Simulated assay, not measured.
Amino acid sequence: MPWTAFTHPPDTLAILLLALTVEAAAGYPDRLYRALGHPVTWIGALIGRLDGGLNTGGQNRRRIMGVFGLVLLLAAVAGTAFGLTATAALFGNWGGLVALGLLCASLPAQRSLHDHVARVAADLRDDGLAGGRVAVSMIVGRNPETLDEAGICRAAIESLAENFSDGIVAPAFWIGVGGLPGGALYKAINTADSMIGHRTPRHEAYGWAAARLDDFVNLPASRLAGGLIVVAALFQSGASPGAAWRALRRDARRHRSPNAGWPEAAMAGALGLRLAGPRVYGATSVEDAWMGDGRAEAGPADVERALALYRTACLLLFGLTAVTFALVAVALL
């Protein structure tokens, strides 16, 4: 098989179907994480080493070194991913597809995202504000001590919506486009943005390239994620697909992020809530537009409604992948 085996549809879509199924059923096992770590931790370690070695000097040098570091990161990840793909090809067509499906199952995070957000609602009910603040601090970067119950619940729902896009739909999209190399390269870009793509004195110049590239590669997934949430509202009791669509069209582009507003606005409209808006990260206040025009007072029950909508959207993503696979396979017959 050529070195590009399993990097084009319909093979990549078959790999994605298996990856989504395995990850939804089993997540990333704790025993495996303790023994080997996770692709994100491996990528993060390399990003940290590059940051420590290259992010020095004046702002112009830092920006150039940030581009250079990003190129080195992507080259290392691409080389590893193509090497694993070539190795999987040695197992034959079916064996290679299964091996790559299992490897790609580490890239989306359907199950872990669900569990982390569900814990916020559960801990709020069981342990009050203190428990909710600890739980939500595991999934958001803002200062949890500034959040009341409504703020905790809104933060959890916002994190669910945004991470549905960049933690599930985006890796799925790029796996579908390019197999393991596509998914791994996306994960490297997204991890780099989360680590160095912040407007801090240390990373404003060095992380500029990572932040801009992350914005670009998330463009298709954020729109798709918003659309999936709108359609999911059709099947969710108490959710409004019409309000989701109106909020998405009206508010998505008002978000300070070029991508996060799409799933957040759709989620807010579907649930009759207001999300985003002014909030505090550390000691820094961020003035952002509200997504949706519903109520700001959210509670644990709203988090659970958001999770139900999220589960439906994940099923729709799987169904969309299956239909696309079938259409591509038939077209290539």
Rank of each mutant, 00 (worst) to 15 (best):
I189C: 14
N190T: 07
A329L: 14
A122I: 03
A86W: 15
T41L: 15
D127S: 11
L185T: 07
V169K: 05
R223Y: 11
G44H: 06
T321H: 01
A75R: 09
A76E: 15
H116K: 11
A184D: 02
D11F: 15
A289C: 11
V77Q: 05
Y310C: 00
A225Q: 12
L17W: 11
Q236F: 04
G176D: 10
H114E: 06
L320F: 06
N93D: 03
P171W: 04
C104S: 10
G178R: 05
L160N: 04
N218F: 13
A298C: 04
G269D: 01
T80A: 09
D123E: 07
A86M: 15
T312N: 00
S194P: 14
W174C: 09
S240I: 10
H114V: 02
S222V: 10
P263W: 00
A266P: 07
L54P: 13
Q110T: 10
L327P: 04
L333M: 08
A247Y: 09
F216D: 01
H38C: 13
A210D: 06
F91S: 06
E149W: 04
E149I: 01
V120A: 05
T324L: 15
R202D: 14
E297M: 05
G282C: 09
V177A: 13
R311K: 05
Q59D: 11
A210R: 10
A76F: 14
D115K: 06
G48L: 14
R154M: 12
G299Q: 06
R34F: 12
A225H: 07
H38I: 14
A265E: 10
W262M: 05
E304F: 01
D126S: 13
V286T: 04
R31V: 09
G182M: 07
S237P: 15
V217M: 15
A78H: 10
Y310S: 00
V169H: 03
G272R: 08
A283T: 13
T324C: 11
T41A: 08
L74T: 09
V67R: 05
E162K: 06
T284C: 03
R31D: 00
L213S: 02
Y310M: 02
A192V: 01
F318H: 00
T7R: 10
V77H: 00
R111K: 11
